Computed example of a mutant assay.
Amino acid sequence: MSQKNKKNAVIIGAGGHCRVIASMLISQKKYEFIKILDFSEPKEKKILNINVEKIDNNFEAYNKKSFDFYLAIGDNKKREVWWKKLNEINISCPSLISDKAIIERNSEIGEGNIICPNSYLGVLSKIGDNNIINTGSIIDHETIIENNCHIAPGSTIAGRVTIKNNCFIGAGSVIKDNLLISEHSILGAGSILLNSIDKKKCLYVGVPAKFKREI
């Protein structure tokens, strides 16, 4: 792509996840320039040499054909709010896939996903919209992850698992094959899940993972 035809990128959020997204965008060299917008007056003026500014919410000022937006927001609920807000005004939120991720054939990836380095999406897996597949996560064959989920670093999800909307899968956790994770569920870091989470809004933790409380 010639320099004059390159688009521009805006990252919303200046926390830790912002650095991952910024690094991916820099390495791919797809954008003429990148800007970071934070929710409050930024403590840092630059992150990875990218300017950081406070959000002014005047998104109509952005030429929708020239800008792509990426949500650097780890919290599912907050990220979903911003996803809906940007979609309502037709802001482009494409998926960002690391060059170091492995995406098998016939997998499906929706919009607004962040597929981080060293993650793996198995054959016939399906990823909906606005998910984070974090560093080193394994999503095996025919697994379905719906929308607004965060799969934390180092998670292993075996084949034919279904993870419903707004779930958080903690770092280093393991999910056995053919299980269901119901909406708004949380699996604690390092847990091993051997049975489905059939009820919504539940926290499971431990080895093996057991019901802890409703959330």
Rank of each mutant, 00 (worst) to 15 (best):
K85E: 04
M1E: 05
L37S: 09
I114A: 03
K201G: 09
K54W: 06
Y31T: 07
I127H: 04
I181Q: 02
S95P: 00
Y62W: 09
G188P: 02
N130H: 08
N87H: 12
I192F: 08
N118H: 04
A171E: 11
G122A: 05
F67K: 04
K84L: 08
L124F: 06
T135F: 07
F211L: 07
G159R: 11
I102H: 04
E80L: 10
T156Q: 14
Q3P: 03
A9Q: 12
G206C: 04
V123K: 09
N130G: 02
E104I: 11
E41Y: 07
G159Q: 07
F39P: 03
H17V: 13
N5K: 13
K65M: 13
N51Q: 14
T156F: 13
D129G: 08
T143D: 01
S95F: 05
N57F: 15
E44Q: 12
S191T: 15
I181K: 09
N130I: 10
G15Y: 01
I55L: 05
F168A: 11
N134W: 11
L179G: 00
K46R: 13
K64T: 14
V10W: 03
S182M: 12
G188W: 09
S66M: 15
W82K: 09
K6D: 00
M1I: 06
K43T: 09
G170D: 11
R19S: 08
H17I: 14
R160T: 13
K100E: 10
E32Q: 14
